[in-house]
Design a protein around this nucleic acid. Structure first.
Lengths: 201, 201
DNA sequence: GGCCCCGGATGACAGGTGTCACGGGCAGGT
DNA sequence: ACCTGCCCGTGACACCTGTCATCCGGGGCC
């Protein structure tokens, strides 16, 4: 019997996944949480062997949660399940110590198999995404550029971004100009969108 | 036995919801589709009585799909299930003829009850969202403003938007300026974000 | 030490953006 | 016939934005 922890911020999806996985005779959902920062404690208390982690979660995202599980509970394996198949996400998830990466539009029957593979010490990574993350290469962005792009995601004016990060307006424009160049964009909004699509943020 | 159709573009979520609802002894999932434009045909072929429709779907969104079901299959009721609890979505879903509106972070056990209520001819609408959609009021945007905001969502320059919709650059700026005023924003990006949050797009 | 990259900042310039005033045209009401 | 609202367009103006050159300081690294 494989003991599972589910982490997803949408209660309906979490409950539905639990129902789906409990149908398998060799799987058992022993814990459910809706926040990333509750994963480690719940996994320890429930004695979970595999954690299914959504990326988009309040408190702590799924990738950082996988890293925390790796650090705090070395015997427990993580399987990241996410809506967005962004190449950079795969890279970061694997670097964080996750054993698997599955997008939410894979067929439902394959999820249980992915769980079994991860529990057996194998990897379960979407092959298309693995390939895409290789051709893209790692993020070329510096820490500052990354930070400023996050703030530029919603289309804020440069002045607002500068105020939020306590930087000169000109400095913000310089960093964003660099990011625009590296992403091949022509606007900071476009650069932010591209970086987000690749999982660089 | 209530016959259900599930429409959600994420196969994993779709399959998981099917597993969840099939656990109920009085419910039966008789059809699953991943696109909005397949809903009517699948509902007709399967003899579904209630359709669970996600809003974000390729082909046709869940609200328009509800309208199509209303028009083509008057006896079939629709229940809109979505990730984003945007007030305008509720209004539009009800106007499109949906009988219910549920967000994806409601507890899993309440979903089956919502389905039963809808099947019985009652409404199942998230009370908080219903209240929010009343205080917000209907969208003040004209059709053009709405269209241009959609194109402004990704932060495209005015020139690109103008080219896409075959309008003068000045006209686009005028319409967007009006939209900025109506949303209380200061940038077209911000206006687009606000309008989207309220479900006006 | 010298080199390179990064962070931070300034100044200048071309081009993009938001606002306003104003014009015309077309439908729907009264 | 008149008014109102929406659509489309132009022109002008102040401001914002992206780019470039240039400077300084701090780490790594050979």
């Amino acid at each position: 019997m494989i003991r599972l922890l589910l982490a997803d911020d949408q209660a309906l999806v979490r409950g539905a996944l639990a129902a789906l996985l409990d149908l398998e005779t060799d799987l058992e959902v022993v814990a459910q949480v809706g926040r990333g920062d509750e994963v480690v404690a719940a996994a320890r208390d429930s004695g979970a062997q595999v954690c299914l982690l959504d990326i988009e979660m309040p408190g702590l995202n799924g990738i950082d949660a996988a890293a925390a599980v790796r650090r705090e509970l070395p015997g427990v394996r993580s399987l990241v399940v996410t809506t967005f198949g962004r190449p950079g996400y795969v890279r970061r998830a694997i670097e964080a110590g996750a054993s698997g990466f599955v997008v939410k539009d894979t067929p439902a029957r394959q999820l249980a198999d992915a769980v079994r593979r991860v529990h057996a010490g194998l990897r379960a990574i979407d092959p298309d995404l693995a390939a895409a993350s290789l051709v893209d290469g790692p993020s070329p962005l510096t820490a500052r550029e990354r930070e400023l792009l996050v703030h530029a995601l919603d289309g804020s004016p440069v002045a607002a971004i500068a105020a939020r990060v306590h930087l000169s307006e000109g400095t913000v424009r310089n960093h964003l100009s660099a990011a625009i160049g590296k992403t091949g964009a022509t606007t900071r909004s476009e650069a932010a969108r591209i970086a987000q699509d690749r999982g660089w943020l």
